[in-house]
Design a protein around this nucleic acid. Structure first.
Lengths: 166, 166, 166, 166
DNA sequence: TATGAATGAGTATTCATTCAT
DNA sequence: GATGAATGAATACTCATTCAT
């Protein structure tokens, strides 16, 4: 699964043959099918952890109750991703364009938490503001995944400033 | 090329066989290769118009000189895309994750125009602000391409308001 | 036809596409088919001159009547081939292994002339001797076509000596 | 490999599609590529045994030390080829015209053995004589492969007689 | 559990040939 | 007479999947 994740994320699901996954993983090609049934189910097995990983990532935000802190923690969220998980998130972003794997529902808990926070901070349209910040997060995450954490630091500070934080 | 663009954008370059492109285009498969040489060159032929299309899209902004108007026009830019070109831009966004086809240099003219504008508007770090707005553009464009123009209108107004416009 | 001869002889009939023949000949691919009908007939058009070329090559021998001179001239025959015709004969030799194009009848005039000559020279089995010398000719021709005229000179002298000539 | 050898030898490498090889061999086409990588490597796998087969064929000659016997055994060599190997040698002869597969070095051990033998027999230019006899071998082999063993017997006896043997 | 040989449907690409101009 | 766009059957090769061991 690690090898498949690496290849799916960096080469592409359709572009990578199961023979290559097997070779680079050092197992027989047959084993992949014995284990996962078929190539698509291998992808699904990898994607299955998405919900759990998101929950883990959101945990710190969800248990925070001070509105300004919620916003700050959300902005810092993309920088807390473990570098070992970059491939996983890269794959997520790539698959966003395949309707089949795009599930906007997964971000809802974060959106709701943010909506409450922006409500507390007296924003005119808290939900719109929440959805907008989520998009900015998306953008910053993309930059981190493509160019590395360092490259995104100026944006982080700019966004924090725009929300009157730090 | 139109058929290929449609399929590459909505199904995926690697996921779509040349036989399908030929069938849906109503030509023989051989013709594709006679004309473009190979599948990759067909993609490149499609992508070759990127620079020109971007220049056309940017034209209205580039010739504007009033700083606030520059910013406003940039924010409205994604809404000026012809719906016939949606497939083309969808393909662009999909291929962003393929290093081979990602060329950040293409956005530089817009970034520079915006930098000058934000300078004129007394922003503290005009270039950073320009690059940030470009990211927001990216976000809004993504939303338009995935959910349609209407869905992005609230964001447009929010962003305009944040920049003190309208 | 010149280009096709070159390519058939040096690359191979099946290995060379008509598109390449057309390109290297500087004509359109269509013209080949307009002119010759199909690829095989192009080959046959080239091969059609075989009989005439052989007759021309044999002419000097046929009109010779002195037995020893006949043998000598036959031995020297491979060295009289015009270098411009090497491709043609290379093609002949290559096609010898295709039953379809192998026509042993063509050598009969030479064999008969040699048989008479060896008869006059009191050889025990003139026809066998004639057929044997023809094979040696074949061998020397092969060497000339593959390594050049110079490389075959020692053999020529050896064979002349073996037949008590020069 | 047996089927491929048969077809390459009797139809031609370029003229025979891998699909036909697979069909006549009773295996799937994919297996050919799984096993040999590509068509050319299949040919090379067949040709790889050339050196060994030649050594086996030469063995009887190499261990002979009596000069006249060496010459006799060389002349008889083409008649000792197992009929099961005719396809293999036919392929060799066909490929002689492809520079890529023509390796004159392989005959050197035989040439050297013959050179020594002709030296012992007081021939004026032993090496030239050796190379000439090799050519005659080539001629006789060609005849055997094309017309069968019987057809070449008269030549065998003629050549033996010319070298004062039998 | 794990392998690796085997498969057959598919995939990009080639090629001889046709045809309208 | 000559072109070049177009074709479709074929061709080498790939790939997900199966299966006996």
């Amino acid at each position: 699964m690690d090898t498949a994740l690496d290849l799916f994320a960096n080469v592409g699901y359709d572009a990578v043959p199961t023979s290559r996954i097997a070779r680079e993983a050092g197992v027989s090609e047959g084993l992949i099918f014995r284990h996962f049934g078929n190539k698509k189910k291998l992808l699904e097995a990898i994607m299955a952890s998405t919900e759990r990983r998101l929950q883990e990532a959101f945990a710190g935000v969800i248990e925070e109750d001070e509105p300004a802190e919620v916003v700050r923690k959300v902005i810092l969220l993309p920088f807390t991703i473990d570098e070992n998980e970059y491939d996983f998130w890269r794959l997520q972003f790539k698959l966003k364009w395949d309707k089949e794997y795009y599930n906007p529902r997964l971000m809802e808990p974060l959106i709701q938490k943010l909506t409450v926070a922006f409500g507390g901070l007296q924003y005119r349209d808290p939900e719109l503001e929440a959805r907008f910040l989520e998009q900015i997060l998306d953008t910053i995450s993309t930059q981190i995944l493509r160019e590395g954490r360092e490259a995104a630091l100026p944006f982080r500070d700019l966004v924090l400033a725009k929300y009157g934080l730090q």
